[in-house]
Simulated assay, not measured.
Amino acid sequence: MPELKTQDLDHILAANRSINDGVSKILQTYLEKEHPRGWNRIDGAKKWIKENGFMIEAPINDTSLGGFVFFRGESTKNICFINTNQPRVYQNFVLFHELYHFLTFGRHTDTVRVLGGRIHFLKTDIDIENEERRADYFASLMLLPENDVEEFYSSLASESKEDTIYYTMYHFQAPYKAVLIRLYELRLINLRELVGRFEKKNDFHAAFQRMGLDTASVEMSKTIDLRSVKELMHNNRYMLPEFTNEENDKSLKSIEQKINELRNLINDH
């Protein structure tokens, strides 16, 4: 999907208004009944997915791919993949986007049918289509809760407008464009500011360094977590011949090796 442009804003803002009630109800139900107690929203969402499905994190050398969900069936645990070869703020957005699809079992979502189920791929940009817009809006509400954003933003009255946006990104670990849209929806910036900044090219790493902020959130994490794959293989060993299990083990080791080689190659460059 191409990167969102300023001309997409009218569509996005109108769609957000129309879906607000429905998405907010799903979010509140999740927070009240599903979200692990005592956990922050990001880590709690990861924990929930791992308890109700399988979660894989690994760097893929395609930064346009945010991740995917592999829907394996109503009675079978689904698989969530997060591409860690992208800034952590985008990983967080993808996490909540995919959480929405887990909660709604990917209803009305475009998927690719494959052996054993169907796959929903997510690009890293904000989407404007139907159920994808609901998933993106859910991610925005999860990352940027209304009361928290308003209270935090009011504490930045002495900062420049540009720095307040960077501080909000940093504090809520959210992507730049998602922050801009949310600030406008909460009437914390005006339409002129939203439009004027929406396609602005920013060096977030340099900005965070200038402000004395930890740059980790705008850097690629390249995390590798294949524990869910190992768990899935372990749980199904009894269903397969030992030869097949041995070959699967070899394949997994090969995948881990290739991912590590890729990560080292990226780090070297």
Results as ranks from 00 to 15, higher is better:
residue 82 I to W: 03
residue 254 S to I: 03
residue 151 E to K: 15
residue 92 N to Q: 10
residue 75 S to K: 14
residue 203 D to H: 15
residue 31 L to K: 12
residue 62 D to V: 02
residue 219 E to G: 03
residue 183 L to E: 12
residue 162 E to R: 12
residue 208 F to P: 00
residue 213 L to K: 04
residue 269 H to W: 14
residue 233 M to H: 06
residue 224 I to K: 04
residue 196 G to R: 12
residue 260 N to H: 14
residue 253 K to T: 02
residue 203 D to S: 13
residue 42 I to V: 07
residue 55 M to E: 05
residue 127 D to S: 10
residue 247 E to Y: 11
residue 241 P to Y: 15
residue 232 L to C: 07
residue 132 E to I: 04
residue 117 G to C: 01
residue 260 N to E: 14
residue 127 D to H: 13
residue 226 L to M: 10
residue 158 S to R: 11
residue 129 E to M: 11
residue 100 Y to S: 00
residue 253 K to H: 08
residue 111 T to A: 05
residue 74 E to G: 06
residue 67 G to P: 00
residue 17 R to Q: 07
residue 194 L to H: 07
residue 14 A to V: 08
residue 137 Y to F: 10
residue 126 I to Q: 07
residue 244 T to P: 02
residue 188 L to H: 13
residue 180 L to F: 15
residue 138 F to N: 10
residue 154 S to V: 05
residue 265 L to C: 13
residue 189 I to A: 08
residue 88 R to V: 05
residue 239 M to A: 09
residue 235 N to K: 13
residue 242 E to K: 13
residue 21 D to Y: 14
residue 114 V to H: 15
residue 46 K to Y: 14
residue 79 I to W: 08
residue 43 D to E: 13
residue 205 H to Q: 07
residue 227 R to S: 10
residue 247 E to H: 15
residue 251 S to Q: 11
residue 55 M to G: 00
residue 113 R to Q: 09
residue 104 T to I: 07
residue 188 L to C: 09
residue 27 L to C: 06
residue 104 T to V: 05
residue 258 K to G: 03
residue 62 D to W: 08
residue 194 L to I: 09
residue 179 V to M: 15
residue 204 F to E: 03
residue 30 Y to T: 02
residue 119 I to Y: 10
residue 67 G to W: 05
residue 145 P to M: 14
residue 254 S to M: 13
residue 110 D to P: 00
residue 156 L to Q: 08
residue 58 A to C: 02
residue 106 G to Q: 03
residue 85 N to T: 01
residue 159 E to Y: 14
residue 30 Y to L: 00
residue 77 K to S: 05
residue 230 K to L: 07
